[in-house]
Design a protein around this nucleic acid. Sequence first.
DNA 1: GCCAACGTTGGC
DNA 2: GCCAACGTTGGC
Length: 152
Amino acid sequence: MQYWIMKSEPSVVSIDHVAERPGQTVDWFGVRNYLARNFLRQMRLGDLGFFYHSSCPEPGIAGLVEIVREAYPDPTQFDPGDHYFDPKSPADDPRWSTVDVRFVRKTRLLSLAELRDHPGLAGLRVLQKGNRLSVTPVDEVDAQTLLGLLAV
DNA sequence: GCCAACGTTGGC
DNA sequence: GCCAACGTTGGC
């Protein structure tokens, strides 16, 4: 199993929103960065996502989700009325992918400050200066550390 | 609102 | 292929 940190602005999609969705499932639309897209394409059924709230008063990990559908074309890239419309994406070779994730559970808020304070997590990609990727891999050791801190 | 960091675009 | 300009992200 692989682990990922997946960032979302809670004002757009929060962990509570996921829990309230039909089937407790949402698609991870709107990724428009090639490296992040490649990570989406590496995701496999059953992978665990740490759901991270960003651009909000208390950024940090707020819950867990599970990958329930592997990468497929992000429909928003073909919708001219959509914020994420990409006129340059070929219909026969879609540029952007999405996955479906399902709610697993909420956790206590593991804040960014607390993540930074933990020496063992210094290598975590999301803590690196200038990191802006919305989807990043987490190695097994770091994942276990996170799960421990979350008391899961 | 500010600013650092980074990705993308487009002229040359 | 270079690089300046611009846009976006995201913490503070």
